[in-house]
């Protein structure tokens, strides 16, 4: 049984600092996109506790296959900020040479899978990775994340079924922010959504049962709780897969391409009790790790730090255009060599 205390107070405080950093960075990256430095951006607000909790739970031996809204998880895992921000801002230092949209990380040396844009497109690969882990008798488990909308895809159901059939060492982690783009996850009665239909009628966490394993629903607004449940699931995954549905709320737009006021009333305004930043502060205070003075000083520090970071990365040079034809195949085909002449 894992207690809250199996992580040192120091590490918990560091995790909280990352959570605050994610909140500030998110706002500034969104702003950078409004100013034209990022052609597209995927906001994070509302997901921070899930991200930090997962990042804290993943150990070196584990493998993480994220989706496109997992920035803070990668940071909390200890991936250098420079690697992550070079990717987000598609700079010449991005290890994938700016080929994908923001937050599409691929860090093989840190056991992080390559984020893919098509929703749930990574879930079946995650099952294959889990199989390879067991086949090679590797330590550790696989955790893969996805949204609530992703549970409507064939990929989700096929991956869950394969995981059940082969009893794979993996955790399916659903970040339920209560809607896909404008379509709500579940039927709602309170008028919070301008709703026609929904993603599903059945509880997501219960879908695991049909595939022969356990599903649980947890509070996704408190990172300590997310950590505890995720770590437990990763350890139990040696005996078979687990599905976690973490409840949270997407506090911002889906992406820089939509206006949420069109389809919902914001029920979790910033600073309210269900805001993961506030919920996590409360837990940390209850654990005597945080007080109001620290909250203020960490805020000031992170505000300053993130401004500097964003200013730096939005001005970093883009990749050299001649790299764009590299690495399609192991051995370059004749027609790619010919097309090099087209890039001037």
């Amino acid at each position: 049984m894992i207690e809250k205390t199996d992580i040192s107070k120091e590490d918990l405080l560091n995790a909280y600092r990352n959570l605050v950093m994610e909140r500030f960075l998110d706002k500034k990256m969104l702003n950078a996109s409004k100013q034209g430095f990022l052609p597209f951006y995927i906001p994070l607000m509302g997901h921070e506790a899930i991200h930090i909790g997962i990042g804290l739970a993943i150990r070196n031996n584990d493998f993480f296959y994220p989706y496109y809204r997992d920035f803070g998880a990668v940071i909390e895992m200890g991936i250098p900020l420079d690697m992550a921000l070079s990717q987000v801002f598609a700079t010449e230092n991005d290890n994938a040479l700016g080929r994908s949209m923001p937050d599409h990380f691929s860090f093989k040396k840190y056991n992080i899978g390559a984020v893919i844009t098509p929703v749930a497109g990574h879930l079946t690969a995650a099952t294959g990775i889990a199989y390879a882990y067991r086949y090679r008798k590797k330590e550790g488990s696989i955790i893969t994340t996805f949204g609530d909308g992703a549970t409507s895809t064939p990929d989700f159901h096929v991956a869950m079924n394969f995981a059940g059939v082969y009893n794979l060492p993996m955790v399916f982690f659903c970040e339920n922010n209560q809607f896909a783009i404008s379509v709500p996850t579940y039927p709602t009665e309170n008028g919070a959504f301008d709703q026609t239909y929904m993603e599903t009628r059945g509880d997501i966490y219960k879908k695991a049962e049909a595939y022969g394993f356990k599903g649980i629903r947890i509070d996704g607004t408190d990172f300590v709780e997310v950590y505890r449940q995720t770590r437990k699931a990763l350890e139990n995954a040696k005996n078979g897969p687990v599905l976690i549905e973490a409840m949270s709320y997407r506090m911002g737009p889906h992406s820089t391409a939509d206006d949420p006021n069109k389809y919902r009333t914001n029920t979790v305004p910033e600073g309210s009790a269900k805001d993961p930043l506030i919920a996590s502060q409360k837990t940390m205070k209850d654990m005597d790790i945080l007080d109001d003075g620290m909250i203020k000083s960490i805020n000031d520090e992170m505000d300053k730090k993130t401004t500097e970071l964003v200013n730096k990365y939005e001005r970093e040079p883009k990749p050299d255009k001649h790299t764009m034809l590299d690495n399609l195949y192991e051995e370059e085909p004749w027609y790619i060599s010919e097309e090099r002449g087209d890039v001037q």
């Binding site: 079946t124 690969a125 099952t127 889990a130 390879a132 090679r136 096929v158 991956a159 394969f162």
Partner: peptide, 16 residues
């Protein structure tokens, strides 16, 4: 499930 067979294979390949 062909989707699963192919995706599973891709994952195995990603892990060597």
């Amino acid at each position: 499930a062909e989707l699963g067979i192919i995706g599973f294979g891709i994952g195995m390949a990603m892990e060597g």
